[in-house]
């Protein structure tokens, strides 16, 4: 195991990963990660506007994991920890920052989620803005812990269409690993 650590770290570096967390994501971890990232990116001279979008997308990605991961523990009253992974990095070839989130979901959710993302990806920024405002007015996607606006917000702020993937999980037919990538 210890032998692998350098390889894991080196692999992440080669892929341009600047910040990552894998495990049970909680609100304090989320907050600590985005705040330290904000400071670090500011230190190395990244444009304030770019940092802001990375910050905004990272929060939405991690709060989506918190709210929708199928592996979630209620720690105390309405405080949750959800298993997932988040990676924030820079692609030196395309000169873009990217935010990746991943978590397990129920296999039953795949079809709806995929259709939703494809629909968002087919829309222009103006159409996304209209959809966001319409959903906010109707409150149709509101649930106990959020407004259900996160994915539309991500599609609005990502400079590229939302990329996504589903992986099968060993020994489980009921679960899939869902990952999402946004570009700044």
């Amino acid at each position: 195991m210890l032998n692998d650590i350098y390889g894991i770290k080196n692999n992440l570096s080669k892929k341009g990963i600047l910040f990552t967390f894998s495990g049970y994501i909680s609100q304090p971890i989320l907050s600590g990660l985005v705040k330290s990232m904000q400071l670090k990116l500011s230190d190395i001279g990244v444009d304030t506007k770019i940092i802001r979008v990375i910050f905004e997308l990272s929060v939405e990605v991690m709060q989506n994991i918190l709210n929708y991961s199928s592996d979630t523990i209620e720690v105390t009253n309405s405080r949750y920890e959800s298993s997932g992974i988040v990676l924030i990095g820079y692609n030196s070839e395309s000169k873009n920052y990217f935010i990746i989130g991943g978590n397990t979901i129920s296999s039953d959710d795949r079809e709806g989620l995929e259709a939703y993302i494809l629909d968002l990806n087919s829309k222009t920024k103006a159409e996304l803005k209209d959809l966001y405002k319409e959903r906010r007015r109707s409150r149709s996607n509101n649930h106990d812990r959020g407004a259900g606006l996160g994915l539309i917000d991500m599609a609005r702020k990502s400079s590229q269409p939302i990329e996504y993937n589903f992986n099968n999980i060993e020994d489980s037919e009921n679960l899939l690993f869902f990952s999402i990538k946004l570009t700044v």
């Binding site: 905004e56 709060q63 906010r136 409150r139 606006l149 996160g150």
Partner: peptide
Amino acid sequence: VYFNSSSSQVFF
């Protein structure tokens, strides 16, 4: 300074 999409719903 910054608010998430759920806060946007609450402000609405």
